[in-house]
């Protein structure tokens, strides 16, 4: 009798044992009651943060309050956030399997029927022949390829607009970076990758640039006898735009790096089937 969790498909039906359910349901119910009670019994805030923020906006260098909070009033959060993103992407890249190790299917020489069936389903859509440098498989359909080509200029323009708009209205580095990351995922999935060699060469620089520029400028303020992250009001707008531009590139690169460094799914499935 094989262990329940060694199925190649995974335990997707989600069989839950009775005793786990017997513990989980009271825990969840109790937590719900406690949270609702806490919300009902809360006390009002002692400071009006919204008013304090609105007062300080004119000196922040940007007009949109959320951008001002992210990069001016609570810049420390954002600095640590891009550090977390960088750390996550670095760990993911370190865990990435070498293309040579991930590519051969010979590790599961006698893959049983379920894995073969699953694999042949994927063969219809996914051709290993279109793999790029990192050994990823691309989905080859004319629609996706054309769409990806057509979306390149549109998404680039949208990202630049969002970055620029962040100063005065909803937008900013994170939204722009997410759009660029979506473009990166599309490129990866479709296999349509213009300027791939150039972008691959600069991948590590792109991962780092956001944190480096942000930390460099924040610490540079110390040399000017100002507090960490204490932008001078005269040049705050320009500094924030420069940091946000660097953050946009890094956020996109980090998210795409995380997406791209997951091990090959079919290889894992075959290996799992091999054990069962």
């Amino acid at each position: 009798m094989r262990p329940r969790d060694a199925r190649p498909e995974g335990d997707l039906e989600g069989t839950v044992s009775r005793w786990r359910l017997a513990i989980a349901l009271p825990l969840g119910g109790g937590l719900a009651l406690a949270l609702v009670a806490a919300i009902a019994a809360r006390r009002g805030p002692s400071i009006d943060l919204a008013a304090a923020t609105a007062e300080a906006i004119p000196s922040s260098g940007v007009e949109h309050p959320i951008t001002a909070v992210l990069l001016q009033f609570r810049g420390y959060d954002t600095l640590l956030e891009i550090a977390v993103l960088l750390a996550a992407a670095l760990v993911a890249l370190a865990l990435r399997e070498e293309p040579a190790a991930a590519a051969p299917r010979s590790r599961a020489p006698t893959a049983p029927a379920p894995a073969v069936v699953r694999g042949s389903d994927e063969h219809d859509l996914i051709h290993p022949g279109t793999s790029d440098r990192a050994g990823a498989r691309a989905i080859e359909t004319p629609l996706l390829a054309t769409l990806t080509r057509a979306l390149h200029p549109a998404l680039l323009l949208l990202a630049i607009y969002l970055l620029w708009a962040g100063a005065t209205r909803p937008g900013g580095a994170f939204q722009a970076g997410a759009v660029l990351a979506a473009l990166g995922v599309l490129r990866r999935v479709s296999g349509v990758r213009p300027w791939a060699a150039l972008l691959d060469r600069w991948q590590h620089a792109a991962l780092l640039v956001g944190f480096a520029v942000f930390l460099g400028l924040a610490a540079g303020m110390l040399l000017l006898d100002r507090p960490l992250l204490g932008w001078p009001s005269a040049s705050a707008g320009a500094l924030i735009l420069a940091i946000e531009a660097a953050l946009t590139v890094s956020i996109a690169a980090n998210l795409v790096g995380l997406f791209a460094s997951a091990p090959d799914g079919r290889d894992a499935a075959a290996h799992g089937a091999d054990r069962s």
Binding site: R74, L85, F174, L255, D267
Partner: peptide, 30 residues
């Protein structure tokens, strides 16, 4: 705007940690 900015930061961190967890899980499964 302050909690909204905190949540925006939290969403980005949540996305990154989810992606990292998926990478680790797939590696574990492999």
């Amino acid at each position: 705007p302050v909690p909204q900015a905190l949540v925006l930061t939290g969403i980005v961190v949540a996305v990154a940690s989810t992606a990292l967890a998926l990478v680790v899980f797939r590696r574990w499964f492999a």
